[in-house]
Write a protein that binds this DNA or RNA. Structure first.
Lengths: 192, 192
DNA sequence: CGTCTATTTGAATGTACTCAAAAGCGGTGG
DNA sequence: CCACCGCTTTTGAGTACATTCAAATAGACG
């Protein structure tokens, strides 16, 4: 499978020469996972930053009481990994599991380190990506702190209509920080 | 006031030549705010990324019901701004207000843009800073979703003991996403 | 000491949770 | 083609964590 969607995505932020595209392509590994397979396992060091070419994945962890909490849901053209583990080389806090057959483009830590040297523009690319991710992350915190579940769900529908369609309700409930039962009740209210 | 703490901070991540330090120093504005003054006002475009040399600030917003929500608390050697507004040049979602007399080193959008060209290493610096900030932001989301208020408060005490000392309880309560009354009860329980 | 602000305490309420069970929805096989 | 299985969603009842409103107490500063 080709990494064209990734190149398209990158060149929305920086320009790449033909030579740079070649260098990049060489360092990136394309890999396909089956439904249910893990891209990252909690406790292992996260070896890759993965860019989803097709398919979808959930990032989650299990708390002391054995309850799963969804940290992130990702589809095509999204990144997924345990960034904290990836950059520190410490055991991952989260699992990343495929929800369907999923093909990703992967940057290993070493590949990325050398790519930063060979294509300095990539520093800018990831800086911009991270800026956006950070801003979005702060927004999510704000929404979680200041809005009741019903409002959070409505905003989720507005912001991620594609995701709503694609994932079971109980995962969305977990992502929103509520139980599946409660989301079901919220949806019932919104019907009327 | 000198920007030495900022230079020390930057050189923990990248190396700077004497010439680069000079370029940097020229582009950075040092500014002192009095207690209560606003570094950023909700609705205005956030003009600066501010690095706190001394003092402290809170980032907050006011919801429809007129309640304040603290998004962030910052002290020396922390960054503060409304990054979303700063990078998009759109009106800020948040206020940033000084809690005491506060001196900051400020990067304007234009200064930073030209600094990225003159000192490409700064791309790396901010990439790393943002990586860390993003990871921390995700951790906060996870804690907010999976832990009861009491546990969140205990972790806050562990992670930010300096902040606990320095800010009134009602701000910490707001940062944790709970009311000041409830934090007071939690603290009473923890005493025993 | 008095005033202003911050914290604590009390009582009633509400939002969201737990546990339990029923209903819906695909897919598979007899 | 229908019966059954596993999985997801819905519904119900009781409960808990956290909120609101109100008032009392404690601290800080002039």
């Amino acid at each position: 499978m080709k990494i064209d969607p990734l190149l398209t995505y990158i060149t929305r932020f920086i320009e790449l020469s033909t030579r740079e595209v070649a260098i990049l392509s060489e360092q990136i590994k394309v890999r396909t996972y089956l439904k249910g397979q893990y891209i990252v396992q909690q406790g292992d060091v996260c070896e890759y930053e993965s860019f989803i070419l097709s398919g979808s994945a959930k990032t989650f962890f299990t708390d002391q009481e054995g309850h799963e909490h969804v940290v992130m849901l990702a589809i095509e053209n999204w990144w997924t990994s345990d960034l904290g583990s990836f950059i520190t080389r410490e055991p991952a806090d989260y699992h990343v599991q495929c929800l369907e057959k999923t093909t990703v483009a992967q940057f290993s830590f070493d590949a990325l380190t050398s790519l930063y040297e060979e294509i300095p523009q990539l520093e800018r690319f990831f800086r911009i990506i991270l800026q956006n991710a950070y801003v979005e992350s702060q927004r999510r915190i704000v929404r979680n702190l200041s809005l009741p579940a019903k409002e959070r769900y409505k905003l989720f529908l507005e912001n991620y209509p594609e995701i709503e369609q694609r994932f079971p309700q109980y995962l969305i409930a977990s992502y929103l920080g509520i139980t599946k039962q409660f989301l079901s009740r919220i949806r019932a209210e919104l019907q009327q």
